[in-house]
Design a protein around this nucleic acid. Structure first.
Lengths: 153, 153
DNA sequence: CCGGAATAGTTGACGTGTCATCCAGTGTTC
DNA sequence: GAACACTGGATGACACGTCAACTATTCCGG
């Protein structure tokens, strides 16, 4: 079927290793800073942002999973932990008795608002302040292309 | 200290969200395929590749951690799991009695050789086959810049 | 040589993510 | 309306990663 595997050439290997290193270090750094500044994980922050984008309307768990592109089970576990810490609450859903609404608590809203400025500043500092506009464009086009290839097949 | 936080502009937000989505989906897809094809996690694969790059010379655990850019404790836990599955073995280090050598077992070598072609093919298919040479260059320059900013501060 | 600092690696506790499974409520079909 | 599959979500088991504490050795100054 594939005879000889086609390995990556030198430039591709360089790009791939560089990308892997960047992504690991960037994620770890942003995570550590957010944790240190605000006591939140990146995942916590994503959930809080998604919920506060919806003002205060309760959001269905499944819909939230879709927004975050998370598996339902991941979200369920994560919400259980966040609920234990008082950041979110689950409410019964009148329309569909097997569904659940998720809402931000006051503590959750405060945590998100407190965390956001430093987090954005870190993203700026580590990424965008160092990139020329063409590099930002390239990042967009690469992301779009790769995502299209992942989705389409 | 920072008065008004400087938010990301529309283009930057687009780039950032796209990057985050790409990286999450790419990692998940590569992980799932490697797991399905070869029963290995990405982390397993990285360890096996690092060890097989060193032919069969035993590698000190600490050095391996450095090569992989992993914390020592992560490596220790991961090696314990891989050792349980028979992919690697730990040996005593004669020079330094508190050190440990890590070696690939035959099963480990076979697993790595069996996994590599499909994994490279997946990276090609999802990433490099879709990118023009300038995009690969841009990926390199972005990775270098971001890593420099993470390191230097 | 002795005692304390540094180093190599392990361990335990805990948060996180995945997969498979389960359960309850819903919808559909006859 | 009873049997059926379907859907929303929770749960348990387990792999993974991090942090802090720990153990055993080595190193170094006196």
């Amino acid at each position: 079927m594939d005879g000889e595997p086609r390995w990556l050439d030198a430039r591709e290997q360089h790009a791939w290793r560089g990308y892997l290193a960047m992504q690991a270090q960037l994620q770890a750094t942003l995570h550590r800073r957010l944790q240190a500044d605000a006591g939140l994980s990146l995942a916590d922050f994503d959930v809080l942002v998604a919920l506060s984008d919806r003002a205060d309307e309760p959001v269905r768990a499944g819909e939230l999973a879709g927004l975050l592109q998370w598996e339902k089970s991941r979200l369920s576990h994560h919400l259980a932990r966040m609920e234990r810490r008082g950041l979110v609450a689950r409410e019964d859903c009148p329309d569909d008795a097997r569904g659940a609404f998720v809402v931000l608590t006051d503590a959750g809203r405060r945590a998100q608002e407190a965390a956001a400025p430093a987090h954005v500043a870190a993203v700026r500092e580590l990424v965008f302040d160092g990139l020329a506009p063409e590099q930002v464009d390239a990042l967009i086009s690469v992301s779009d292309e790769v995502r299209a290839r992942i989705a389409g097949r």
